[in-house]
Nucleic acid binder design. Structure first.
Lengths: 247, 247
DNA sequence: CGAAATATTGAAGTTATTCAACTGGAGTGG
DNA sequence: CCACTCCAGTTGAATAACTTCAATATTTCG
């Protein structure tokens, strides 16, 4: 892990953000708001920050002040267990909000690290609650976002009864769906994370992930070339393995 | 499953609820509110409902209007998978809020059934958002509750790397902690759910749960007598197996 | 009391993990 | 440019863990 200790204090390249002109409007907080309301949101957003690959956005235990929305790039969240093992808790792409877990105790409960050069918009949480009071639709939408996060986490529970291959397919379908919503190909994409990180997230060992990939390729369902994945028969994948393709 | 279809429409024994005089004040929504604010909350809460053992509070797919706080009793939430398997998503005791997952799409995403005769307070969600606008501390506390739910669900992910016995211990420690907060013994309690429901929740088969119980008893760490559990050496349990004792 | 549901336990079978060897690519420095 | 190293990934064989099937015991509840 590179020495990037004080990133949270010394964030570089701070750009004034603007929701009004942001390409993520339809995926992000502003969904369903009218012009005037989006302008109010512009005042809320402090600034954008660039986070380079390998740098942390926040670490478990630090004070919580702001939520962050991924604008570009890709993040991993994880916690360190007592025994030192790293448990991955999620992967996050543009439009998704980071830090919702920290509201509960005003302290971050997980670490967030960029898996590629990324940009985030900072949302001071106190300010969000303030503006929310005057824009009910914004507050309501924020509640939906928090609720969606609860549903997302719950989705992981559903993997409980599945076998390794099924879990991996559910994971791939989930990624596929999220890429599609962002305008990328749902059939052909690059994994940003290692086999070990996938395994940690799914509760499997890296070797098991590797074998499951090989097996799916043998069966002709996908093509794997290192991090590059191609889904050859997405309908078959959907039918055969659960429906965890939802967001 | 008993025929109790229209429960949500025909809830029985509706009592006017009052937070001001409720024993759960320190566990529930009113935490940290002053007298006046709690009285405002009294207006928010529609009524209490009695739900008998085996009856459903809500079912997946139904429209969402109200959150419910467990006042007395014990609930299980679960989803039905395509293949008909029942996946348990949580167990809920007094002071805990049900329905947070439903905000996301104005539709319940899970079923909630009472595992013993229970009572819930109904919180119409639109009304909660309205009153929250005038009582910032209430709104803020509500956000903390949602966030806590996210952390709770995430906690389940941490079981990913654990073995059957460890998962079960984590589960028991979690129950123990929640009982303690409610004034019950953390060392000696009654399970309200079956081995199969525990297994479903933890991603294990009922036989595995049964064996894990037997093993823990052989080792002298707990006493099991059907649903009655006694933790003989809680420190040892805590040390040996993760720290999932948090709420 | 008797039927149905729940729980326990054993033995066999499956699946995932562990340990270990090996491959291939990215980056380094001579 | 090549040799070298490091890291990620793949694969095989042995082991451990969990599940499945099956038989039996116990509890719950009408």
């Amino acid at each position: 892990m590179p020495p990037d200790s004080l990133i949270t204090k010394k964030l570089r390249s701070n750009i004034k953000a603007s929701c009004s002109s942001c390409g993520l409007r339809e995926l992000c907080l502003p969904v369903g708001l009218d012009e005037q309301e989006v302008r109010a949101l512009d005042h809320l957003i402090n600034q954008r920050h660039k986070i380079r690959r390998g740098e942390h956005l926040h670490r478990a235990g630090l004070d919580f002040h702001s939520l962050h929305v991924v604008r570009t790039g890709f993040f991993k969240t994880y916690v360190l267990q007592e025994d030192g093992r790293e448990q991955v808790t999620g992967f996050h792409m543009p439009g998704e909000v980071l830090g919702l877990d920290a509201i509960s105790a005003d302290t971050h409960t997980c670490n967030a690290v960029a898996l590629e050069d990324s940009e985030v918009c900072e949302l001071p949480f106190a300010k969000l609650e303030g503006i929310g009071r005057t824009i009910p639709s914004l507050m309501h939408h924020f509640h939906k976002i928090m609720s969606r996060e609860i549903v997302r986490e719950r989705g992981m529970l559903l993997l409980g009864g599945m076998k390794a291959g099924e879990r991996l397919v559910a994971f791939l379908l989930n990624l596929s769906h999220r890429f599609a919503r962002r305008g990328y190909s749902p059939l052909d994409f690059n994994l940003r994370m290692t086999r070990e990180e996938i395994g940690s997230y799914l509760g499997l060992k890296l070797e098991t992930i590797s074998r499951a990939f090989s097996r799916l390729q043998e069966d002709g369902l996908i093509n794997v070339n290192n991090k590059r994945i191609r889904l050859n028969d997405i309908d078959h994948l959907r039918r055969q393995y659960g429906s965890s393709s939802c967001e």
